[in-house]
């Protein structure tokens, strides 16, 4: 608890002048990142595993990733009021990969992820309090990494 406060203070110092002082920061979802299985990771992150399949999430990712350590993904959420976009790589030892909390109208994020093996990439969008998900299989070549 103390360490967390110290780390937060460190970030506040780093950001001083960059953010409104006293703005609340969301909590790092430690348990979700520690979970070893996808359903557990989702339950820790969202409190439920009840997700609605949707085709309104656009996932751009290579069919076959040439470098498993750098798989580019681009996510477009088709929902207004998208509150968060989360990435879960089913085949990784720690499947929960990232969550982007969006505080203003925003529908697009892109980053690069590591994949331990060919597996599904789950994208979970929280919009208007509801959870929506879409899945995309990504295959990786021999250059797999440890993630």
């Amino acid at each position: 608890m103390k360490r967390r406060t110290l780390l937060k203070a460190g970030l506040q110092v780093a950001l001083s002048g960059a953010i409104i002082p006293g703005a609340a920061l969301a909590e790092y979802p430690t348990k979700a990142f520690l979970a070893k299985e996808t359903p557990e990771a989702i339950r820790e992150a969202f409190g439920t595993t009840d997700l609605g399949e949707t085709d309104k999430i656009e996932i751009e990712a290579p069919l076959i990733a040439s470098d498993a350590n750098m798989v580019p993904v681009r996510i477009h959420s088709g929902f207004d009021n998208t509150e968060s976009i989360s990435l879960v790589v089913a085949g990784n030892e720690s499947p929960f990969t990232a969550v982007f909390k969006l505080y203003e109208s925003q529908n697009f994020v892109s980053t690069r992820i590591r994949m331990a093996d060919s597996s599904d990439l789950l994208v979970i969008v929280k919009a208007d309090g509801m959870l929506h998900t879409s899945t995309r299989p990504i295959r990786v070549g021999r250059n797999s990494c440890e993630a």
């Binding site: 982007f100 505080y103 203003e104 892109s110 980053t111 992820i113």
Partner: peptide, 22 residues
């Protein structure tokens, strides 16, 4: 000076992380 996005990352984000958004 207004926070628009917070990202929480784990170990599955690549080295020299790339981040793009609109």
């Amino acid at each position: 000076r207004r926070i628009v996005m917070e990202a929480f990352w784990g170990k599955s984000i690549s080295r020299n992380p790339f981040l793009a958004f609109e």
